[in-house]
Design a protein around this nucleic acid. Structure first.
Length: 109
DNA sequence: ACCTTGACCTTGG
DNA sequence: CCCAAGGCCAAGG
């Protein structure tokens, strides 16, 4: 498996339950582009907590929303009825602790 | 090598 | 809040 693929999956697995990170956040942490993160998760996301990675609007592509909503609810992430996605203000993972958990703190500025 | 396709992001209306 | 435009860029045909 490619190095970057491993790093991305590792970073995603390090996101604490009940919290989320954006594709951009993951990209910055591992050192690649947001698109690359999306591509990798689209292929190897099955064995990761993929529902904890959302786009800049706190959403995921339509076909994944049903399952994602269940997962979010299951770990205490409450999405208001009227909201389209996860409110990042409240659930976004904090960079430092997350990076430490991921064992990739060296990539952090 | 060219074209199309995305689990993207930011900015401006 | 929604939409469009421009930038982005690897993978697969």
């Amino acid at each position: 498996m490619h190095e970057m693929t491993e790093m991305v999956c590792q970073a995603v697995r390090a996101i604490p339950p009940g919290r989320v990170a954006t594709y951009g956040d993951v990209a910055e942490l591992v050192g690649c582009t947001a698109r690359q993160v999306g591509r990798i998760l689209a292929i190897h996301g099955a064995d990761t907590p993929w529902w904890r990675v959302v786009n800049a609007s706190g959403r995921l592509p339509p076909h994944l929303m049903p399952e994602a909503r269940r997962r979010w609810a299951a770990e205490g992430i409450n999405v208001e009825q009227d909201a389209a996605g996860v409110p990042l203000r409240r659930y976004r993972a904090e960079p430092k602790p997350w990076a430490d958990r991921a064992g990739l703190a060296d990539e952090y500025d």
